[in-house]
Design a protein around this nucleic acid. Sequence first.
DNA 1: GACCATAATCTAAGACTCGAAGAAAGTCAG
DNA 2: CTGACTTTCTTCGAGTCTTAGATTATGGTC
Lengths: 400, 400
Amino acid sequence: MGTSGRRTVRDLRRGNRAMLLRALYFGGPASRNELSAATGLSAATVSTMTAGLLESGVVVEAGQVDSDGGRPRVLLKVNPGYGYAVGVDVGETQVKVELFDLGMNVRAGAHYAVRSAKHDPELVARHILTGVDAVIAESEVPPEGVLGVGVGVPGIVEPGPDALVRAKTFGWEAVPLGTLLRAGTGLGTGLPLYVDNGAKTMGQAELWFGSGQGTRDAIILLVGSGVGGTVVTDGRIYRGAGMAAGEVGHLKIVAGGRACRCGARGCLEAYLGAEAILDRAGVVADSADEESALARLLEEGSPVIGESVELLGVGLSSLVHLFNPERVVIGGWAGLMLGGRLLAEIRAATAANTQAQPFQPETVVLGRLGPDAVALGAATLVVEPFLGGAAYPESVPTIA
Amino acid sequence: MGTSGRRTVRDLRRGNRAMLLRALYFGGPASRNELSAATGLSAATVSTMTAGLLESGVVVEAGQVDSDGGRPRVLLKVNPGYGYAVGVDVGETQVKVELFDLGMNVRAGAHYAVRSAKHDPELVARHILTGVDAVIAESEVPPEGVLGVGVGVPGIVEPGPDALVRAKTFGWEAVPLGTLLRAGTGLGTGLPLYVDNGAKTMGQAELWFGSGQGTRDAIILLVGSGVGGTVVTDGRIYRGAGMAAGEVGHLKIVAGGRACRCGARGCLEAYLGAEAILDRAGVVADSADEESALARLLEEGSPVIGESVELLGVGLSSLVHLFNPERVVIGGWAGLMLGGRLLAEIRAATAANTQAQPFQPETVVLGRLGPDAVALGAATLVVEPFLGGAAYPESVPTIA
DNA sequence: GACCATAATCTAAGACTCGAAGAAAGTCAG
DNA sequence: CTGACTTTCTTCGAGTCTTAGATTATGGTC
């Protein structure tokens, strides 16, 4: 106990610099004056600090704004071209690699199809490595400007340089993805590497740029083929003691209920998620057809849909009781499909189960980013330490 | 967004002072040297800082220890007599008021029976006020040495000077306990007032002095007549956006299941907790007999007990998946009774439902403090800001 | 062109932590 | 009993940092 918080006067500056950078990054272009108000720092400090940031190129000017009869404000913003982040989405059917600038604009992308039956870890690692090289080359970005590589994978990621991944859907028991990537060579060599669960990276994307913007305590539920989620506390993704927190999909909603692929019974994921919903409706569909099959079910007004809404309400209610969030975001393609038509019903079901504490149904909203935000979120893992957040654990391993 | 973290160099000192004080408070007597190691501060800083603390009387010397041929270490400790905290337990059958010194030794106590049918808010407030006066008088402590009053109540407490309490079991819809207490007079006048859910105060007691010691991420489940709990993240009680987080009792375990007194269905509290267990077993017992009735059920090996263990495992599994805690503590009188005999079974049931992530059954342990720790925990609410923790929200109202 | 308003920078002062050197308070061998 | 040695604690100078207040920059208004 005890080794936390600022110590020396130098850490103080680091912290204030991070605060300022965050304010600038999320608060859009702003004048020094506005930054002073937003951060609580004195104008003098903001001035000296921005001077340093401008000189190093992290921040650039972004026009002026007249100020009612006085000296016009000079607007500042984070220089989108100062650095770049690679985001990787390791999905069921493909490995997607994208390169973003700091403004989170896509500069280049690469896709590699994976035969959905078999997910050979080494093959996936090879796809990632060649993908990283490809997007760096394609974007014509200076390789030294790339700040790191973020990877979103299914399952649970153990912290540490090995980045052990456990993903039952892939048949990965304890795949040391970090080690595999380090064994490669190429342009990516030496880049900081961040690996996390894909639902969490996507959740962070919603939090930063989507429906979660501006909240400090939120829950982001991702309903796709399965169910995942992200718990945000105090403006950060909550990872718990071993980075495995927030496994929303295995929240139990029916004791002794349907068997889940995790081996337990009654998990949310055993009822929700396209796969489970279709299974409960007795529809046979392989993963390519899931989307149209679910749409059909919705169209027909199948009773299974109504049940699903009810069960979703039960799950959300548990989450609300435990986390008391400001906002609940429902994302993922299946979540958006359901929520697009039945948001009112979902809210009502949640409220009906949430009697023990004050709860506003309007806090349940739909995601804004669509299902493709895993890579974007993975890239934010790289941007986070750049902003000085340092939410990601201690030592960051590098590729190769 | 933005107004958090240290700003000026003076906040830096405050933070470091808090770090040191916490290390001393929880790390027992320690020499300046050990404090330097524990906090990461330089010996010089520790020296100047402890000098100030000694002069103000917050810290006192506590003997010496020989040091293998060198100058002996002077041990320091927090002066237990520097300040005092009053803890109040507003329970079903009584209002208990206790006065603690900073070493959390009871210096005086007072009890007021409450007719369990009717909990008149004004009567409860009067009991608290007279109790505070009584313990201050009895303990012969200088009134200006009392740092504040902490109150543990059932139900949910809304933050703010009113301290609105919602407690269905008491028939309290929105009782402004803070306002009621402020209307009184007496020795307690002007004391800072902290009101929180009793399960959370008890959880904090368990965290500080019981089985939760030393953990940063823990779950403390309290099974008494009902079910409550505390979620600890990052060494602090997690309160969420509106202080209502951690309502473990209303985690759903059976969608559409038994009706809970909160109005919803399938809550943990509708199955666990002495009241629900006895009800499920078909035993009629009023609150005074619950303890012996439950003991009898346990003796007989009633199948309801086995089911209860299974359901507890389901609930814990949900919590583990969501929070990934270092430790899970089971407390409360009914929890201790069940856990005392069936801890192994509870661990097994939890593990059986927790397949999706690594989980060590041994992290589930029993509480150490017994069921009477609500008042102790309430007193820690007062001590926390004294240590510089400031986990409790913004402005603290005062009595009268 | 004089005057005013607002934004940004400069300057001096105060506060803080740190490393290094020095003082304190013992033990131990001879 | 003395001097060397060990370990703990304190003092002091140096280097950073933020802030308030004064100053400079840059426009509009009359």
